[in-house]
Amino acid sequence: MFKAKLESAKEFKKVVDTMATLLDEICLQVNEEGVRAAAMDPSHVALLSLNIPRIAFEDYQADEHEIGIELEAFKKIMNRAKAKDKLILELDEERNRLNVIFENQGKRKFSLSLLDLSGATTKVPELEYHNVITIKGDALKEALKDADLISDHVIMRASPYEFKIEAKGDLNDFTAEFSSEDDAIISIEGEEEVKSAFNLEYLLDMVKGVSKGDIVKLYLGNDMPLKMEYSLAGCELMFLLAPRIEE
């Protein structure tokens, strides 16, 4: 069986929105410890991994199951979440459906037909990073939106004391600079200077669910994938984004 209750359907909507911008479908691996999932986008440029430990749920009961979900349909349902709605996710094994229930003044129940995605699990590569930037989510998001006016990609640079996002257009440039003294920065770790270039459309999709108060961790290397981590209402999201390189 699988039955799990989340305090805020609206908060979980942000998680589903973020998954749906990058992925078409995802296979949730549920067990007594919580819910996990990992998948690459169709072009294999980005990877998203989700971990919701059982402590993030108000109620949680689960045996081992793989629950394959079509994300566009799930997103449409989650868009109906209202403030103060609780969310119950419940596996109906007989009908092979995931019941998505909004609980508030009554119960509104959608039954989402499941996909057979068994065996489609994605392994997450273990990459080693020396530079880690912990930054306020809104500052990062605004800098990426600024850069989007200038170019379709950015260069991220990190040194022991500084983090920069640069965009170069044909005529105009943009640079966001954050030093370890700035309010936006929680910490900058790393002993060397590194830089990698990334596609902006993917970056903007990855920070879609981030709002004021969220803290984002960035792991950077030289022409290495960007690793990004943040939590939304106890749901831990991790992304990898492959770099663009000079040929």
Binding site: M40, H44, V45, K123, A197, M224, P225, A242, R244, E247
Partner: peptide
């Protein structure tokens, strides 16, 4: 010329 890599290169 810039080239977009895929994650497969890092597995």
């Amino acid at each position: 010329k810039k080239k977009q890599l895929t994650l497969d290169a890092f597995f």
